[in-house]
Design a protein around this nucleic acid. Structure first.
Length: 213
DNA sequence: CTGACGATTCACT
DNA sequence: GTGAATCGTCAGC
Protein backbone atom coordinates (compact mmCIF):
# COMPACT_ATOMS: atom_id res chain seq x y z
CA UNK A 1 0.00 0.00 0.00
CA UNK A 2 1.19 3.43 -0.75
CA UNK A 3 -0.82 5.05 1.94
CA UNK A 4 0.87 8.20 2.95
CA UNK A 5 0.48 7.40 6.59
CA UNK A 6 0.43 10.39 8.81
CA UNK A 7 3.61 10.02 10.73
CA UNK A 8 2.73 10.59 14.27
CA UNK A 9 5.21 8.36 15.96
CA UNK A 10 4.12 6.80 19.19
CA UNK A 11 1.05 8.35 20.68
CA UNK A 12 0.54 7.65 24.34
CA UNK A 13 -2.56 8.41 26.33
CA UNK A 14 -1.75 10.59 29.31
CA UNK A 15 -2.01 8.56 32.55
CA UNK A 16 -4.33 9.57 35.33
CA UNK A 17 -1.37 10.52 37.51
CA UNK A 18 -0.59 13.32 35.10
CA UNK A 19 -3.77 15.11 36.16
CA UNK A 20 -3.15 14.56 39.85
CA UNK A 21 0.14 16.40 40.14
CA UNK A 22 0.04 18.96 42.93
CA UNK A 23 0.85 22.06 40.90
CA UNK A 24 -1.83 23.08 38.42
CA UNK A 25 0.55 25.55 36.80
CA UNK A 26 2.92 22.72 35.95
CA UNK A 27 0.07 20.79 34.41
CA UNK A 28 -1.21 23.75 32.40
CA UNK A 29 2.27 24.30 31.03
CA UNK A 30 2.84 20.61 30.33
CA UNK A 31 -0.40 20.45 28.37
CA UNK A 32 1.01 22.78 25.73
CA UNK A 33 1.85 20.61 22.73
CA UNK A 34 -0.22 17.65 23.87
CA UNK A 35 -2.94 16.10 21.71
CA UNK A 36 -6.65 16.42 22.39
CA UNK A 37 -8.68 13.54 21.00
CA UNK A 38 -12.45 13.17 20.92
CA UNK A 39 -14.61 10.45 19.41
CA UNK A 40 -18.06 11.90 19.70
CA UNK A 41 -21.00 10.85 17.51
CA UNK A 42 -18.63 8.43 15.84
CA UNK A 43 -16.48 11.29 14.56
CA UNK A 44 -12.80 11.46 15.33
CA UNK A 45 -11.29 14.88 15.90
CA UNK A 46 -7.77 15.56 17.14
CA UNK A 47 -5.64 18.63 17.64
CA UNK A 48 -2.57 19.95 19.36
CA UNK A 49 -3.12 22.15 22.39
CA UNK A 50 -1.47 25.55 21.97
CA UNK A 51 -3.07 27.64 24.72
CA UNK A 52 -4.21 26.91 28.27
CA UNK A 53 -5.13 28.74 31.46
CA UNK A 54 -4.77 27.52 35.02
CA UNK A 55 -7.45 28.09 37.66
CA UNK A 56 -6.15 27.50 41.12
CA UNK A 57 -9.24 26.76 43.13
CA UNK A 58 -10.06 28.44 46.40
CA UNK A 59 -7.14 30.87 46.41
CA UNK A 60 -7.94 32.19 42.95
CA UNK A 61 -10.65 34.80 42.59
CA UNK A 62 -11.00 34.05 38.88
CA UNK A 63 -11.93 30.46 39.61
CA UNK A 64 -15.50 29.24 39.93
CA UNK A 65 -14.36 27.49 43.11
CA UNK A 66 -12.85 30.60 44.66
CA UNK A 67 -12.90 30.69 48.44
CA UNK A 68 -14.24 27.17 48.57
CA UNK A 69 -17.40 28.01 46.68
CA UNK A 70 -19.08 24.74 46.05
CA UNK A 71 -22.28 24.35 44.10
CA UNK A 72 -23.95 21.81 41.92
CA UNK A 73 -22.16 23.15 38.89
CA UNK A 74 -18.67 23.30 40.41
CA UNK A 75 -18.96 20.00 42.23
CA UNK A 76 -17.01 18.18 39.53
CA UNK A 77 -13.98 20.40 40.19
CA UNK A 78 -13.72 18.89 43.65
CA UNK A 79 -13.34 15.41 42.23
CA UNK A 80 -9.93 13.83 41.73
CA UNK A 81 -8.08 14.99 38.60
CA UNK A 82 -8.70 13.43 35.22
CA UNK A 83 -12.27 14.52 34.50
CA UNK A 84 -13.77 17.01 32.09
CA UNK A 85 -15.57 20.14 33.30
CA UNK A 86 -17.62 21.73 30.55
CA UNK A 87 -19.85 24.66 31.27
CA UNK A 88 -21.95 27.20 29.44
CA UNK A 89 -20.83 30.81 29.26
CA UNK A 90 -22.96 33.77 28.18
CA UNK A 91 -25.72 31.32 27.43
CA UNK A 92 -24.03 30.47 24.14
CA UNK A 93 -20.52 29.12 24.48
CA UNK A 94 -19.30 25.88 25.96
CA UNK A 95 -15.90 26.00 27.65
CA UNK A 96 -13.83 22.88 28.10
CA UNK A 97 -11.78 22.48 31.29
CA UNK A 98 -9.64 19.72 32.71
CA UNK A 99 -10.08 18.93 36.39
CA UNK A 100 -6.74 18.44 38.12
CA UNK A 101 -5.20 17.63 41.50
CA UNK A 102 -6.60 15.39 44.21
CA UNK A 103 -10.08 15.04 45.60
CA UNK A 104 -11.34 18.14 47.41
CA UNK A 105 -8.85 20.37 45.60
CA UNK A 106 -10.82 22.22 42.89
CA UNK A 107 -8.05 23.10 40.45
CA UNK A 108 -8.66 23.14 36.71
CA UNK A 109 -7.10 24.00 33.37
CA UNK A 110 -9.07 25.74 30.63
CA UNK A 111 -8.22 24.74 27.07
CA UNK A 112 -8.29 27.98 25.13
CA UNK A 113 -6.90 27.05 21.73
CA UNK A 114 -5.97 23.98 19.70
CA UNK A 115 -4.27 23.45 16.35
CA UNK A 116 -6.40 21.02 14.31
CA UNK A 117 -4.81 17.75 13.17
CA UNK A 118 -7.54 15.34 12.14
CA UNK A 119 -11.27 15.57 11.54
CA UNK A 120 -11.21 19.09 10.16
CA UNK A 121 -14.26 18.33 7.99
CA UNK A 122 -16.14 17.40 11.13
CA UNK A 123 -15.01 20.58 12.86
CA UNK A 124 -16.24 22.69 9.96
CA UNK A 125 -19.56 20.93 10.11
CA UNK A 126 -19.93 21.45 13.84
CA UNK A 127 -18.94 25.09 13.82
CA UNK A 128 -20.82 25.93 10.65
CA UNK A 129 -17.75 27.57 9.20
CA UNK A 130 -16.97 27.50 5.48
CA UNK A 131 -13.20 27.50 5.62
CA UNK A 132 -10.62 25.97 7.90
CA UNK A 133 -8.86 29.16 8.87
CA UNK A 134 -7.15 30.09 12.10
CA UNK A 135 -10.41 30.93 13.78
CA UNK A 136 -11.67 27.34 13.59
CA UNK A 137 -10.26 26.26 16.93
CA UNK A 138 -9.10 29.55 18.37
CA UNK A 139 -10.86 30.62 21.53
CA UNK A 140 -12.31 28.33 24.18
CA UNK A 141 -15.84 28.50 22.82
CA UNK A 142 -14.73 27.41 19.39
CA UNK A 143 -12.56 24.60 20.70
CA UNK A 144 -15.45 22.96 22.53
CA UNK A 145 -17.71 23.43 19.54
CA UNK A 146 -15.25 22.02 17.01
CA UNK A 147 -14.55 18.98 19.17
CA UNK A 148 -18.22 18.32 19.83
CA UNK A 149 -18.07 19.00 23.55
CA UNK A 150 -20.97 20.36 25.54
CA UNK A 151 -22.16 20.46 29.13
CA UNK A 152 -23.31 16.87 28.81
CA UNK A 153 -19.64 15.88 28.91
CA UNK A 154 -19.01 17.35 32.35
CA UNK A 155 -17.70 14.56 34.53
CA UNK A 156 -16.53 12.45 31.60
CA UNK A 157 -13.23 10.70 32.28
CA UNK A 158 -10.27 11.97 30.31
CA UNK A 159 -9.11 8.39 29.99
CA UNK A 160 -12.22 7.36 28.10
CA UNK A 161 -12.37 6.41 24.48
CA UNK A 162 -14.75 9.23 23.82
CA UNK A 163 -12.48 11.92 25.18
CA UNK A 164 -8.83 11.85 26.15
CA UNK A 165 -5.47 13.55 25.91
CA UNK A 166 -2.28 12.09 24.55
CA UNK A 167 1.37 12.83 24.05
CA UNK A 168 3.39 12.14 20.91
CA UNK A 169 7.08 12.48 20.25
CA UNK A 170 6.88 16.19 19.85
CA UNK A 171 8.95 18.03 22.38
CA UNK A 172 8.16 21.62 23.10
CA UNK A 173 11.08 23.71 24.18
CA UNK A 174 10.44 25.61 27.35
CA UNK A 175 11.56 28.74 25.55
CA UNK A 176 8.66 28.23 23.13
CA UNK A 177 6.12 28.57 25.89
CA UNK A 178 5.15 32.01 27.13
CA UNK A 179 3.24 32.84 30.29
CA UNK A 180 0.84 35.80 30.28
CA UNK A 181 -2.11 37.06 32.34
CA UNK A 182 -5.43 35.39 31.73
CA UNK A 183 -8.19 36.74 29.52
CA UNK A 184 -11.65 37.90 30.48
CA UNK A 185 -11.14 37.76 34.22
CA UNK A 186 -10.95 41.46 35.05
CA UNK A 187 -13.43 40.97 37.85
CA UNK A 188 -10.80 38.94 39.75
CA UNK A 189 -8.89 41.98 40.99
CA UNK A 190 -5.22 41.32 41.61
CA UNK A 191 -5.62 37.70 40.62
CA UNK A 192 -6.41 38.84 37.09
CA UNK A 193 -2.77 39.83 36.72
CA UNK A 194 -1.31 36.45 37.56
CA UNK A 195 0.61 34.85 34.68
CA UNK A 196 -1.53 31.73 34.58
CA UNK A 197 -2.05 31.63 30.82
CA UNK A 198 0.34 29.60 28.72
CA UNK A 199 0.70 29.88 24.96
CA UNK A 200 2.84 28.30 22.29
CA UNK A 201 4.98 31.04 20.84
CA UNK A 202 4.09 32.28 17.37
CA UNK A 203 1.31 29.80 16.81
CA UNK A 204 -1.44 31.24 14.59
CA UNK A 205 -4.15 29.39 16.51
CA UNK A 206 -3.35 31.18 19.75
CA UNK A 207 -5.90 33.86 20.50
CA UNK A 208 -4.81 37.45 20.18
CA UNK A 209 -2.95 39.13 22.96
CA UNK A 210 -5.37 40.81 25.31
CA UNK A 211 -5.78 44.51 24.79
CA UNK A 212 -4.98 46.72 27.67
CA UNK A 213 -8.07 48.18 29.21
C1' DC B 1 -39.70 32.61 42.06
C1' DT B 2 -36.97 36.58 40.43
C1' DG B 3 -33.16 39.24 38.79
C1' DA B 4 -28.36 39.81 37.56
C1' DC B 5 -24.51 38.36 35.13
C1' DG B 6 -20.65 35.67 32.95
C1' DA B 7 -13.34 31.83 32.19
C1' DT B 8 -17.11 34.73 24.80
C1' DT B 9 -17.89 35.47 19.98
C1' DC B 10 -19.33 37.78 15.94
C1' DA B 11 -21.01 41.48 13.02
C1' DC B 12 -20.73 46.02 12.19
C1' DT B 13 -18.80 51.05 12.23
C1' DG C 1 -13.42 49.57 18.81
C1' DT C 2 -18.19 48.78 20.28
C1' DG C 3 -22.31 46.29 21.42
C1' DA C 4 -25.64 42.52 21.22
C1' DA C 5 -26.83 37.74 21.68
C1' DT C 6 -28.77 34.42 25.19
C1' DC C 7 -29.61 30.98 29.09
C1' DG C 8 -27.91 28.28 32.99
C1' DT C 9 -26.41 29.23 37.51
C1' DC C 10 -26.62 31.39 41.84
C1' DA C 11 -28.05 34.42 45.59
C1' DG C 12 -31.77 36.48 47.74
C1' DC C 13 -36.43 36.97 49.20
Amino acid sequence: MKTKAITMGTVTKLPVDFYRQPNVLVIAKALIGKILITRIDGKLTTGRIVETEAYRGETDRASHAWNGRRTNRTEVMYAAGGLAYVYLCYGIHHLFNIVTNLEEVPHAVLIRAVEPIAGIETMLLRTGKQKADHSLTRGPGNVAKAFGLNTFHTGTSLLSKELHLASDNTTIKLSEIIATPRIGVDYAGEDALLPYRFILKSNPYVSKMPKKK
